Amino acid sequence: MLRIGLLIDSLIGGGAERVVLNFAGGLAKLGHDVHIILVKNEQQHQTSDVPFTIHHLSENGVLAESRWRNKQLLSEKLQATVTRIESDGKKFNFFTSNAEDMDRLSKMAKLDPVFIRYRNSMVKYIETKVGNKTGLKKIIRQFRWIQKFRSIYSNRHIVTVSNALQGELVNQVGVKPKSLTTIYNPFDFDLLRSKAAEPIDPALKPQEPYIIYAAKFENRKRQDLLLKAYAKANISQKLVLIGGTYTASDERWYKQMMELIKELGIEDKVILPGFQNNPYAWVKGADLFVMSSDSEGLPTVLIESLIVGTPVISTNCPTGPSEILIDEFSTFLSPTDDVAGLATNIRKALESYPEITDAYLEKFSINNSLSQYIRHYENQSAGNN
């Protein structure tokens, strides 16, 4: 039995948080001693009934006004939490870091070994930070962010969630990892399908056929692109947008989407049920799942939708969709920021879609993913002896 620590900021609604719970449930079922350690005591997702333990470093992530001092205190709390758990004489075999704050804090706390799940495009993130800067200001800002990422991620164990992220990390950002491999996120097919079979609250359940997108409201998820494509597609199905807001920026984006819905004249066709603890029943009931993001790591929602049998289409954003929708499914990828392309694929997928088989999805199965993580840990341990 291994003792494994899963590090993440919180368990509020999101794909990364669901993946951590998939890890925890799957590893616990295999008989391992699993501990989830949170920066903030915040949780929306339902937790499994299998035995794993959840710890938190703070109530809201703030222990000091100074940003530097706050990180220092949180790293000390992380170190103390690990020491307390290990006081029974059993050490952690390894940790996985599943969020940016924990990537930094685990380094400051000198935890080892930590396998960092590299989840999102660093290049796209830098682009958003550079914004519309030009000339010397652009060069300086790019340089600072690249140096920051190199200082955090170089000489560390990196596990990318898609193959495309490997090249970006090494060739474009210049990170030099201690080890580097790709392991897809784990998905418990039976659990997802059982959740998908649960009833939807009758007060919220759409009475008409619908298509769906489940994502928090933020610019990167591009609900605006989907709304425009949906209006252009002119289909009979309603559009369900599942998701919540967690920051002031998210709230502003949500307000803009409400205004856009009015501008497009589709107020009577868009359903907004907010965050849902069990989105799988909603996805299962949809005629189509549509993802409109500008960037991802390995989009959990696409794989989950396919597992519960719902056809999906997506923007071909970096990274992940092109590794999920391959072969005959690849025709349902459209360029990012392409309203017409997304609208065309909405109509095409509703008319005809390939059969979704477990053989096609096997590379995302929980047993396949977890066995790769354990094997990777064993290989790294053997290399250090």
Score class of each variant (00 low, 15 high):
L260A: 10
P209W: 07
P206C: 13
I261G: 00
A214P: 07
T245S: 13
Y230K: 06
Q256G: 01
S236I: 11
D250V: 03
Y230A: 01
A196W: 02
L260I: 05
G243R: 03
M258P: 00
S236A: 15
I211L: 12
P202G: 10
K262M: 05
E218L: 13
Y254C: 08
Q237K: 10
L264N: 08
R220S: 09
I211W: 06
M257L: 15
A248C: 00
R252F: 00
A196I: 06
S236T: 13
K195C: 06
K255D: 14
K238C: 08
K228L: 07
G243Q: 05
K221L: 09
M257W: 03
R222Y: 02
P206Q: 12
E208R: 15
T245K: 10
Q256T: 11
G244F: 04
Y230V: 06
F217W: 10
A229E: 08
D268C: 07
G265D: 11
L264C: 11
A233I: 07
Q237M: 04
K232V: 05
E208H: 13
P206T: 12
T245C: 12
Q207A: 15
Y254G: 01
L264M: 10
D250K: 03
W253V: 11
K255T: 14
E259D: 15
A248S: 15
W253A: 02
I242L: 15
I266Q: 06
D268F: 03
N219S: 12
S236N: 11
L225Q: 02
I261S: 01
D224V: 05
Y210I: 09
G244A: 06
E218D: 13
K216N: 15
I200V: 14
E267I: 06
A203E: 14
Q256I: 07
K195W: 13
I242R: 04
I212S: 05
L225Y: 01
D224N: 14
A233D: 07
G265W: 08
Y210D: 05
S249D: 15
A233L: 08
V240R: 01
K238P: 03
F217G: 03
Y213V: 00
K262H: 13
A197E: 14
T247V: 11
